[in-house]
Design a protein around this nucleic acid. Structure first.
Length: 419
DNA sequence: TCTGGGGTCCTAGGACCC
DNA sequence: TCTGGGGTCCTAGGACCC
């Protein structure tokens, strides 16, 4: 039996979430911003039609925002995460095999289903009924083709949001009119290189000999070419994988110049990353710290550096991670720069029961550290940021800008919408 | 003035080993 | 004159994704 993948992808997901509780915004232009209110990361169809590109810095689109009275929202990840899990839950009720691929899309296994378009419409209407956000669905024998089908379902109104791309003739016809940059796995750099070779459409790419693609480009693109030709190389990964790294970073509203300010901020990131690590019940061995100035501010002197170090014993103890992060930071900090961003990355994880114990430390100390961390996490869950370590910087002055934040409608009692 | 954050995977090259 | 070769592991950096 041939396999059939479906890609279910929400339309302008963040915008749809905001509209869910603001029905007055239907058919009105809406955007949602990135952290710090920096860039536009979600646009309603009306805004796309105005030519505003994904990732545009807000200040560059300010004229259009004013002229067309575009409604602007800061990102509200609590809300989007909750709506997302409702969508995924609905999908899991429909299909037994679901791979949650991102906050707003999932691959489904629809192998063996005869009337795919009908099934697709059923999925759309069920998600709309249960959750209230519109989705589009593409179906095909490989993930890459399912992505392409989904793109078509979004692009062409006549499809009514569902495209069945199991027929090879239809695959070719669609690839012929799809620019190669729309293909999953072809980013900006690859697009440039491919164009130099005269490869403009998805069909052009699909016709390249896979072996040559591997030589000239990469195994990743070779896989893409095979998938475009109906050879499935990417399986449905419906078993949730453990995360491999945890990153906590921010751009600063106000640039930081002093050693102490930046150090405290790095400590804050390290502490948050450590808490995230504990909530996943993992231990980390590697800690990285990076700091940098703003690459956009070309008149100011630029500096960017990072450092990585290993803990003697894998740990999730904030104390240990803070200590190492501070040392790493000390090694890369240079005076005289206006720092715009910093971050801490934890990696090389292992399970708590798989740790090689330190020869020179007693288990007793480890356990004491553990219970301290559990107590800290419990208090901070109830009241964010009530307990912190020396070196952390709990003051909010560097916190992100969120000038246009919507309420946490679905996750806080005091934000429940009133009917 | 104002330019996101959080991930994954692959590769090249160096260190090291025998 | 001649200056190995094959292998693994690790890491940094690049490209991509949403």
């Amino acid at each position: 039996m041939t396999q059939t993948f479906a890609l279910v992808d929400a339309n302008n997901f963040y915008v749809s979430c905001e509209r869910l509780f603001r029905p007055d915004l239907k058919n009105k232009p809406v955007v949602v911003l990135s952290n710090n209110d920096g860039c536009i990361v979600a646009r309603s169809q009306e805004v796309k039609d105005l030519g505003v590109k994904m990732g545009t810095p807000l200040f560059k689109a300010m004229d259009l925002v004013k002229k067309h009275k575009i409604q602007v929202f800061s990102s509200n990840y609590t809300l989007y995460g909750d709506i997302s899990s409702r969508v995924m839950q609905t999908l899991e009720e429909i299909s037994s095999r679901v791979e949650v691929y991102s906050i707003d899309e999932a691959f489904l296994d629809l192998s063996g289903i005869n009337n795919l378009v009908e099934q697709g419409q059923l999925i759309r209407s069920t998600v709309m009924q249960n959750v209230g956000v519109p989705v589009c669905i593409g179906m095909a024998p490989t993930k890459t083709l399912a992505k392409l089908a989904n793109h078509a379902a979004k692009t062409y109104k006549a499809t009514q949001g569902v495209v069945d791309l199991t027929d090879p003739i239809r695959q070719k016809r669609l690839m012929e009119i799809t620019p190669v940059c729309e293909i999953w796995g072809v980013g900006r750099k690859l697009n440039l290189r491919l164009e130099e070779q005269g490869i403009r459409t998805a069909l052009d790419l699909s016709k390249m000999p896979p072996k040559r693609v591997r030589q000239r480009y990469s195994v990743v693109l070779e896989r893409t070419v095979r998938e475009l030709n109906g050879e499935s190389c990417l399986e449905l990964e419906d078993v949730v994988q453990k995360r491999q790294q945890i990153l906590c970073s921010r751009s600063f509203g106000n640039k930081l110049t002093s050693y102490d300010d930046l150090k405290q901020t790095v400590c804050e990131f390290a502490a948050r990353a450590a808490a995230k690590l504990r909530s996943e019940d993992q231990l980390a061995r590697m800690v990285s710290v990076f700091i940098r100035t703003s690459p956009y501010d070309t008149s100011a002197p630029q500096y960017s550096n990072s450092a990585t170090g290993a803990l003697a014993v894998p740990s999730s103890d904030t104390h240990k991670i803070l200590e190492l992060a501070t040392n790493l930071f000390h090694g890369i900090f240079r005076d005289g720069y206006a720092y715009a961003k910093a971050g801490v990355i934890l990696a090389d994880f292992c399970a708590p029961d798989a740790v090689q114990m330190d020869l020179f430390r007693s288990n007793e100390n480890v356990e004491r550290g553990d219970s301290l961390m559990k107590a800290v996490d419990a208090i901070n869950r109830k009241s964010q940021g009530r307990v912190w370590f020396g070196g952390q910087r709990p003051e909010k002055d560097w916190y992100m800008r969120q000038a246009n934040l919507s309420p946490a409608y679905t996750t806080r009692w005091d934000c429940l919408p009133v009917v």
